[in-house]
Write a protein that binds this DNA or RNA. Sequence first.
RNA 1: GCGCGCUUAGCUCAGUGGUAGAGCGUCACAUUGACAUUGUGAAGGCCGGAGGUCCGAUCCCUCCAGCGCGCACCA
Length: 893
Amino acid sequence: MLEPRYEHKEVEDKIYSLWEKSGYFNPDNLPVAKNAKPFTIIMPPPNANGSLHIGHAVFVTLQDILTRFWRMRGRKALWLPGADHAGFETQVVFDKKLEKEGRSRFKMTRDEAWKEMWEFTQKNKVVMENQLRKLGASADWSREKFTLDPRIVEEVQNTFVKMYEDGLIYRGMRIVNWCSKHKTALSDLEVKYIERKDPLYYIKYGPLTLATVRPETKFGDTALAVNPKDKRYQKYIGKEIEAIGLLGKLKFKVIADDAVDPKFGTGVVKVTPAHDTTDFEIWQRHKDEISGPKTIIDENGRLTRETGTFTGLKVAEAREKVAEAMKEKDILEKIEPEYVHQVATCYKCGTTLEPLPKQQWFVKMEPLAKKALTAVQSGKIKFYPDRSKKVYFHWLKNIRDWNISRQIVWGIRIPAWFCLSCDETKMNPKIKSRWFLVRHGESEFNKEHRHQGQMKGNPLSAEGIVQVQKTAKLLKEQNIDLVISSDIERCEMTAKIIAEETGAKLVFDERLREQSTGVAEGMMKDEFEKKYGDIFSKYEERIPGGETWKELEERIWKSFNEHQKNHKHMNVVIVTHGSPISYILGKIKNIKGEDLITAPFPKNAEVVDLVISEPCKKCGGDIYEQDPDVFDTWFSSGQWPYLTLGYPKGKDFKNFYPTDVMETAYDILFFWVARMIMFGIYRTGHVPFKSVYLHGLVRDKDRQKMSKSKGNVVDPLGVSEIYGTDAVRMALVAGNTAGNDIIISEEKIKGYRNFATKIWNVSRFILMNKPSGIIKSTPSAEDKKNLAQLKKIKTEITKHLERFEFHLASEKIYHYFWHTFADKIIEGAKPRLRSNPSNPLGASNEEEKAAAYQTLETILIECLKMLHPFMPFITEEIWQKLKPGEPLIIAEW
RNA sequence: GCGCGCUUAGCUCAGUGGUAGAGCGUCACAUUGACAUUGUGAAGGCCGGAGGUCCGAUCCCUCCAGCGCGCACCA
């Protein structure tokens, strides 16, 4: 007998652990023939940076339906779960978390940030896995993967190296989409264009006038361009014109290029190769005529020293000030105040992106795209809905090279090293020894923003000691032989902690001291600046009582070279100060004079990790540094289907690849699906999956996208708690067609909760009427008709599921169960079950009752099977009462 | 600008070359029954507009409108 009510809260966990204990989520344990056909779905790995939202519940439902359906049909069903480290996304979440705590990633060392993010994602991962279980996911947890599992990382890097060797990956200086808040480049897909109204400025360049929305980039102009066919400007092409600039007279060559639209503005454009993609391309076409990128905006979105009085201004401020200055000089002809245009912004934070020239890694897309196109055109991969093919084709046909370098910490490190002296690239160099340049931890003076120089009485702060201890722990794993340190207190303390932790020998070298800064020592930084100005940016100028930069450079370089020669085969830590580290690196890179001063400066307790390897073929240098960048997350998740199956040698790869279905949301068609197809074909020679099913985005009943700020998010776990997981799953399937958005409301879920109650009560009623003992029975004509109808319904539902028509299948079984089975068949059987003595059929009452029962039970059993993929918990619970023993999960469909 | 969708009952959506369906909502009635988390029934739609193909169009084609989305270097 069943309880009077279905209590999902008591049932769901119990049933899930029954399944887990059965082992049937693992295809190896299924009671099927050895040669049974596999059915494989790789789960789109949720980002390990938060909890599951309703969109995840959609994929869980759909993929679980497929997995359960095909498992019941006798296939070796594998649904392989995983989690994604989600590089940039996670780092953004992490940044926000830090911000709330009053901290910043940009003040942390790389290793420190990495460690915290690792712990953060590991925690989230566990939460997520349990949420997936709550939603009923019948995934094989024994095969679960994380994108940062060592073997996955290794294989991702192998792909990179292979592609590099095959000429599919190159490193180059290109204009990238730079987010000055997150300080990283983004791929073209991560750019969100928004419409904005800005003033359009008409600027006079000598005899010509041109229109621009970005007057502040004027300082980076290297030419003017017109359309070659533009009659108005024929006489200027190839000539140099003189113009009045804000910083004096300028000379620009006028070139002709097709990229210029004669109908826009005045038909003349300024060419700013460093800060505009089109202009960069124009320059590349006219390299021998005009000069190249002149960077006037830095990574913080501020104007550089090239811009005179505008130095340090943010782009937006600079724009207004430059316009004002131009007005004063009478070179601003007019302003169109409300010019509407598209502005590139960061899809995560909305910051206006700066086009900046950067050395980055790119994937050459055309050859990959071509094959990915053919695979779908030839029908090797089918799309559901079919129309999404068109979108896919359109993208592939217009594809541009993919920037895969990210200037963030959280991700898979690019396995490329650069010869420090000539920048030559080497993949996975043979490591002879390692040199770690370590800056001292935070000192008391650092904390107080004082110049410290060589001043005494300036030990590490409490925070500084903690920083150094963390660094020392990391260095311990590196088999350090020797620590060489500056003898200034803050370094001495740092070196002692490191030497103790690593057990390495410790020596001091006074040549590794910080620059002696004379009168500056002990002074507050802003106070000093007021008094002495920017004396620190002069290479050969002497601060009273101190050393010049030049003198520091010579002393440091001599020391470093000597230690290099003497300890070549040792793993060495050099503990020194900010400027010395910056200078050592700068010197190796052949940076000269004043430019050395602006070379990157390490943070407190930061480690610069240098590798000593075979001498470079190009310049003979043997010091290498690994590219600090990490891969775009999609570079690793794009390889997910074969990586999760243990490519290249894994048994699973042989058995389960290519997979059957890739089920995911349509908004990551380009980000993910297209790239999986490209990578799959490239590395394995086969498509990664045979079908792509794309579901829509979940919206509320007013068609609004769900977002936290709107307050209309439906928490799948929350509503499951209230109405039961089965009800939520049904609500997510019904009316959910491929490629279209899904509308969900609490009322809809409630409706399916009612359905669950119906299922429960129907089962309860039937079990209540179970005859005691075995009674021979013959089905009546009515029974036969009903059973025949059942068979027909089942065939239809099977077909629907085979065709990915989840909504039709779910609605059909819902309808049949409630309005045919419950309302008609059971109602019709009631008189027979009551053993009416005046039964005209002539059968004995008991026999008649048994026949009626038998039919109802048969229909119930079949209905439970058909409902199971959609509503796994309640059906299994009833099944256990009806047929104790083998679980419903492997009942034959 | 190019491309892809959508437009069907009050709401949310299915659907088919033979002049329409579901859920929710509304209304009426019933019901101490396995189930009020129920049942029976009703009202409600020139299937966005205009043309075309066809014996016949909500469905196929063309154009138009509104909405949504994607792509795009227009300074």
